[in-house]
């Protein structure tokens, strides 16, 4: 087990390297200089040349990559091109709290409604409750977050003035973004919970538990649910990825100053150091999430042997 964990942790290094390489190459393949963005107010030639020298983008691309990786290993993420040379670490540090809060709230909300919904729907298979929860799950996985967000903003923001929909600050600001962000992963979790619960309640050990006279409640909670939730745990990995990509859209839409919005801005403004750092951060989080899932999976289910 320990050897497996160590090997997986070591595998993160080459993967991160390739993620960095791909992102770096793509970002620098784009023609033109990152400083000639504004066609209405073009910078003088000398200023561009000076800026390029200052940020080191006048050097050959392979050399820039080596320098970047070197700095990265020393913990230096570089300075933002667009925000007047502000350190990228600063910008990320400022936004990550907000993004993480939003992500965690959304994940908790998703778990809170999806697991009970999935269980009830499996126990009452082919009843109106089941159909309703399947419908919610289908709609939730199909309709994109920004479309749901628009309908919500229309109803609760513009229509009834119940909730603010621009910016960040009070808890009211978090209600709609959290809900929208939770909907996709939550709907997916509902489907998984339902499917795995349906499978669990047909197993022999559940029949045994019932035939030895256990109360229905302890059969469901103590025997079926315990096993049914194992596959659910594996979804945390993809759910994390979903929350991250969801945060780009939701933060842009609701104007929330988290890293998702900074990321979309930096892509549009070709702020290489921001793009690189955020991409690497996301890739790292996802790899850790996937690794955690695999370890937890092995620990939860002794039938699975890691190798």
């Amino acid at each position: 087990m320990l050897r497996y964990v160590i090997r997986r942790l070591l595998l993160i290094i080459p993967t991160m390297f390739f993620v960095a390489l791909i992102t770096f190459s793509l970002a620098h393949l784009a023609p033109g200089s990152p400083f000639d963005k504004n066609p209405n107010r073009p910078l003088p030639e000398e200023t561009i040349a000076h800026l390029e020298r200052y940020f080191g983008v006048d050097k050959p691309i392979p050399e820039q990559f080596v320098i970047y990786i070197g700095n990265l290993l020393r913990g230096d993420l570089g300075a933002s091109f667009v925000q007047r040379g502000r350190p990228v670490a600063d910008i990320i540090g400022q936004g990550i709290g907000i993004t993480a809060q939003l992500g965690i709230q959304a994940l908790l909300l998703a778990l809170a409604f999806s697991i009970p919904l999935g269980i009830v729907s499996a126990l009452k298979q082919n009843t109106p409750i089941d159909y309703l929860s399947l419908l919610i799950a289908t709609v939730g996985t199909t309709i994109p977050g920004f479309v749901t967000a628009i309908f919500l903003i229309y109803i609760f923001g513009v229509g009834f003035h119940l909730l603010p929909f621009v910016g960040w600050g009070s808890w009211q600001h978090t209600v709609m973004p959290t809900f929208v962000l939770a909907l996709g992963p939550g709907a997916f979790l509902t489907r998984i919970t339902r499917a795995s619960m349906l499978e669990a309640i047909r197993q022999d050990y559940v029949r045994t538990a019932r035939s030895k006279g256990l109360r229905e409640q302890s059969v469901i909670v103590g025997h079926a649910l315990k096993n049914a939730l194992i596959p659910v745990a594996t979804i945390i990995g993809p759910a994390t990825a979903g929350l991250i990509t969801g945060s780009f859209i939701i933060e842009s839409l609701f104007n929330i100053p988290g890293i998702g919005r900074f990321y979309v801005l930096s892509i549009n403004q070709r702020d290489y150091p921001m793009i690189m750092s955020t991409t690497l951060l996301y890739a790292f989080i996802i790899m850790i999430a996937n690794l955690t899932v695999d370890i937890v999976y092995g620990a939860l289910d002794p039938r699975i042997k890691v190798s």
């Binding site: 993967t15 791909i22 992102t23 793509l26 990509t245 549009n268 991409t279 996301y282 996802i286």
Partner: peptide
Amino acid sequence: DIIYAFPDLLFVIIIVATLRDT
């Protein structure tokens, strides 16, 4: 392994955004 470390949408955004002016 590498592709799975990128969320799909993140990767598409990077490709499309960086190659837009080519």
